[in-house]
Design a protein around this nucleic acid. Structure first.
Lengths: 336, 336
DNA sequence: ACAGGTAACGTAAACGTTTGCGTAAAACAG
DNA sequence: CTGTTTTACGCAAACGTTTACGTTACCTGT
């Protein structure tokens, strides 16, 4: 398990270990001949450069931290995969941490990642409230958020246009004839979910509908949360003809509860989600939803972060990507 | 961005930096009084220990590598989440790498992780064939596989009992009256999938059924692969009354193809999966399957790896966990 | 009071790299 | 052939820790 170091190969090659370093790191100040000779010896001895030691002196680790609320939500796990692959192709590895939708834990793993000397952090924040403590952290390391943030927190971020996305959803349901639309969301104080709600509310106002909002006490956008909340809702008389969920996972939970309550979708009630996770495309789910350009979010987030790492003084940029309607079979027209 | 080091706080506290180190690392050879004084100064100056430097001298990083074929499969992403959380609670961070079901890439990221000086590697292997090259890597760092491996590769591993699991599935379908069962698998040469197939074959022999096997040319157990392969299959006349898939994701793809071909499940054909991903519990999917004890796999894998790290000479242990049948509504009895 | 022990802290080496600087030899210009 | 530049390499410091060892000062027991 004791690995071979520069000094070891230097001894064998009968050169100083600085020369070996230059050979392996591709420095120009070395002759092609000795480079080939040394690299051959490296192979033979099974030398692997110690990136920890390299990080010490170069003062960068080529490691990125990723803080994500959960990997059980396919939107986030697929995003994580895209981030990892893209980052690795650009020479960076990803240290992944679950915040488990816990605000304190989120901050805790953030400083843990800083202690790990990551070169940058990508974070999907769970909420928005106590971000004074977060600022103290983002000052220490380049950070990009996958979330929308307002002027009061002008860090780098990339996101789908949540506000517009939910407007599109609301307008779509309106165009189908729905006039009583229930907005169904997790209790998250994140900007992302705040803007989605605002988009719904603004469209309601514009279209002259009275909004109905039902929010869970949990901040987690999971199937279980949607299921539990919808179970209650369906047990009582209702007037809404459509349910607009702030996430596909919630919608899937709602659908499950509807199924068990004998309520058919879209016959008895229309259902929409947001995110367009891959499972929503299943014929049995067939959920009309708003698409997030996951891959583009991932590549942009990494690009923005690397730019910021290379030039910390550069101006912060934000990127809002356009959402799009994915029309499937979970909504029906209720025109008379 | 320039962080404060031991020397900086030593200067302020007017002690040697060794003393500061002892204060923060909880060494006993320091008085309680100076410890408190130094820790207070650390807080004030915002000192965060540099774990890179610590890793240099302690010769361990407290980082674990995870190599996973894909995060798009909920079985793997949920497993990843469990691994990360459990490992973090034991003081280790996770560096996650996708192998994308690519054998060469798998080996490439493995050596990349070794260069990163990870203390151990957890790997869900994509295949089994060219494992001479893998041995060269596992010799360099403690490794545990989440997969079954045979005597020819006696590394640490933890897995559900794939062979028995598929026997249970086959026997279950038999007990329902099925005599023509199609085994539907991805072309994976991993031990995991090999054993699942073997379990099916052995049960067929024991129960006097002639096996029918259909395998994809892709090694990826994805919805798309299941969909494509089943599309072909359903376009031709068939005699089988049940389809047994080597993974839930495949079964979900099969179900989608069946839906589009107008074939109803379980009325026209019964369907079974393997893994018990959370989506299989949805009423619209409602897939009868074999459960993997994900959480236990995750904790055991981490425990085994940490044991191995602490005592590299210790004997390798393997853990085979019992599978269990999850009976849902995707299979029907065909007794006359 | 004195030997011996212990508690608390300082000194310095070490971990494996990278890299600025120095220097010898080789290449070149005149 | 001399003087200058260039090339290829060695030397040594530095990155921020940990820790074995030394060294005080203080506390024991007799």
């Amino acid at each position: 398990m004791a690995s071979v170091t520069l000094k070891d190969v230097a001894k064998v090659a009968d050169v100083s270990y600085a020369t070996v370093s230059r050979a392996v790191s591709g420095s120009p100040e070395i002759s092609e001949e000795t480079r080939r000779r040394i690299l051959k010896i490296c192979k033979e001895m099974g030398y692997t450069p110690n990136s920890i030691a390299r990080s010490m002196v170069k003062r960068c680790t080529n490691i990125l931290g990723l803080i994500v609320p959960s990997l059980n939500n396919p939107f986030m796990s697929e995003l994580t995969a895209d981030l990892e692959i893209y980052a690795r192709n650009r020479g960076y590895n990803l240290m992944v941490c679950n915040s488990s939708y816990d605000h304190d834990l989120e901050l805790e793993v953030f400083s843990l990642l800083i202690g790990r000397q990551v070169d940058g952090v990508i974070m999907i924040p769970v909420g928005h409230e106590p971000y004074e403590s977060l600022s103290a952290l983002t000052k220490q390391v380049p950070t990009v958020f996958i979330s929308e943030n307002m002027q009061d927190y002008p860090e780098n971020y990339v996101s789908v246009d949540n506000y517009r996305g939910m407007q599109i959803a609301t307008e779509y349901l309106f165009s189908l004839g729905h006039r009583d639309i229930l907005y169904f969301g997790a209790r998250s104080n994140s900007k992302t979910h705040e803007l989605r709600l605002d988009g719904y509310l603004s469209s309601c106002e514009k279209l002259g509908m009275t909004p109905h909002v039902l929010r869970s006490t949990y901040s987690r956008s999971s199937r279980e949360v949607g299921y539990a909340l919808a179970g209650e809702y369906f047990s009582q008389p209702r007037q809404e003809t459509a349910i607009l969920c702030s996430a596909d996972m919630l919608a899937i939970g709602v659908k499950q509860a509807a199924y068990e309550a004998g309520i058919r979708i879209p016959k008895d009630v229309s259902l929409m989600g947001f995110d367009n996770i891959s499972f929503s495309a299943l014929p049995e789910i067939d959920l009309t939803t708003i698409n997030q350009p996951t891959q583009q979010i991932a590549t942009s987030a990494v690009d923005m972060l690397l730019d910021h790492i290379r030039d910390p003084e550069a101006e912060r940029t934000n990127l809002i990507l356009p959402p799009s309607l994915i029309e499937r079979k979970s909504c029906r027209s209720v025109r008379a």
